[in-house]
Nucleic acid binder design. Sequence first.
DNA 1: GTTCGATATTGACTCGAGTAGATGGGGGTG
DNA 2: CACCCCCATCTACTCGAGTCAATATCGAAC
Lengths: 343, 343
Amino acid sequence: MDSMTSPAVQAPRGGPVTRKDVARYAGVSTAVVSYVVNGGPKKVAPATEAKVQDAIRVLGYRPNAAARALKLGSSETLGLIIPDNTNPFFSLFAHAVEDAAAALGYALVLSNSDGNLAKERRNIRNLAARQVDGVLLASVLFDPDLEALETAEIPAVLLNQEHDAPGFNSIGVDLAAGARIAVEHLIGHGHTNIGLAMGTNVSGSLDGREVGWRQALQEAGLQEGPIAYNGFTWPGGYLAGQRLLASVNRPTAIFATSDTQAVGLLRAIHEAGVAVPGDIAVVSFDGSIESEYSWPPLTTVEQPVAAMAEAAVAALVGARRGEKPRHRIFPTKLLVRQSCGCP
Amino acid sequence: MDSMTSPAVQAPRGGPVTRKDVARYAGVSTAVVSYVVNGGPKKVAPATEAKVQDAIRVLGYRPNAAARALKLGSSETLGLIIPDNTNPFFSLFAHAVEDAAAALGYALVLSNSDGNLAKERRNIRNLAARQVDGVLLASVLFDPDLEALETAEIPAVLLNQEHDAPGFNSIGVDLAAGARIAVEHLIGHGHTNIGLAMGTNVSGSLDGREVGWRQALQEAGLQEGPIAYNGFTWPGGYLAGQRLLASVNRPTAIFATSDTQAVGLLRAIHEAGVAVPGDIAVVSFDGSIESEYSWPPLTTVEQPVAAMAEAAVAALVGARRGEKPRHRIFPTKLLVRQSCGCP
DNA sequence: GTTCGATATTGACTCGAGTAGATGGGGGTG
DNA sequence: CACCCCCATCTACTCGAGTCAATATCGAAC
């Protein structure tokens, strides 16, 4: 940037600089400007290109994204709908999606549905109207309202869905398998009374994590420990902790279905003066950052968030090129720290 | 939604439905459709309006946002640039901004700069090219690179800036005052050796929180406790904790400049087998959710995030109506929990 | 029965950029 | 010297919606 020339040519006109201004300044037609900007479908002589580039720099021209989107029918934008970007797992996911999208030149519109189905629906419609090229939806329902997406005719990826929805991409982890390795690990520590802090969402359908917990116990020939159903959130885990501590057969180990719950759980356990993992061991699910800095650090089932985000974005971009919807399940991995009783 | 009619009229044509299709179906001109959709500048006869509404519903028409943006010169979109949406304070802020923007009909484009100045700059340019109506920038620098914003001629709000940048809105809290009430509270508990876990960022300039810590000690006639400079992050706080524990004059209280640091700090303290608040009291800064569910729950200086987000969005929307840039400082509030020694 | 007026509707132009098809100019070959 | 071809460039139409100026259309009043 030549700081001597810029003040002189700064704002030679009122409004923003358009292709026309650049063309006039460079003494060429508007088409040539487009060709230069896009490495367009036609070639431009080097000398002309230089003139145009110069004009662009001097005038500070930026192509109007709205006009571009109108003509091309693509806004180079993806939409992400999650229950709450404040939840560490979703914030992790949002960051990964943003990275993946940015790498492909797409911007990311964020919207929270706050566990509210009406708001989720409104967000879908809103994104549809904004001509986003694709939507990533982590629905508040296990069985989301797909009608809005269908009528919008926008490529979509359903996140953390277990059953495939025909016509839609979906991406998730094997929740049952993940829960199983968590519970099996606790069983390996010798626990025989393992409770469950189960998150709930709007729909009542069965979560794979509950299935996995049950399977692991059954295969080991153990009885089911107590269950507390509460939200996937901090207060949900806190309440679950209080309830499980008060249950008649207080468990010696608890599997929590999210890190966030586990952190709330830990607070309840500490408050009661009970030792972790000495008196009660804890294993959780997600592998978000907060699991690493809680006390004690949480043993947790890690989801491959970055890979999932990349796959989701790739699916959306691919959909615009006519690729077929796919259903992908990613594997989880046990991240052993100390809350389970390991040293 | 009449489920009987929708399958029959579904997708009567290939591409998406445009205003023209609606006009044809309703037997009116395209102008009338616009008037109906927008409660337009001209009135429409009730009977006609009904016909149009019907056509809209039947065809599933959604106005094309790109075309609208082109004509109106506004994309009804704001951009948010933060270092890392995974950090609980920023995630809280992002959520609040999203809410405030949505309430005014604006969408939010999220981009992370990951503490990387080059990336921050790239994000600014990117958002500028996308014709966002305004940018909220939480810069990695105390003194951000404003040139990109200036040449983009986009209304902007600088977040957490202390000194005004002429020509820009800015919004922040009184960091020094906040730090002072935190440290004064610790002094009130009888502490005389109060350490500081200070976050650092790219620029080297002095942070108000450090100033406030120093002021409070000075006013009380106390000597400065040890300082650990590390990132505003979890590992930063963890390292700071280890260093402060090992310092020759180990403090009996620590002020951490973010909740995230405090959580890392707590882990280090717990690992060393030191009691909080018994042996070492902790007060932190931000008031994000994680402060409530750590162990023990953190006494923290709360920032009025929702109010700040609303003010920031209002400033951007106002800027499009010709309002002048303002510099606003919000007050903080001490949120007393248990890490400070209160019951 | 004509004219005025109010109201409802329409045609046509605009926003800024992409690009096909038309047009020009320069060099090489016969 | 005439011809052709190729490459560089321009003209002009397009995307979908907002909106003003120019019409219909109808009823009421004289």
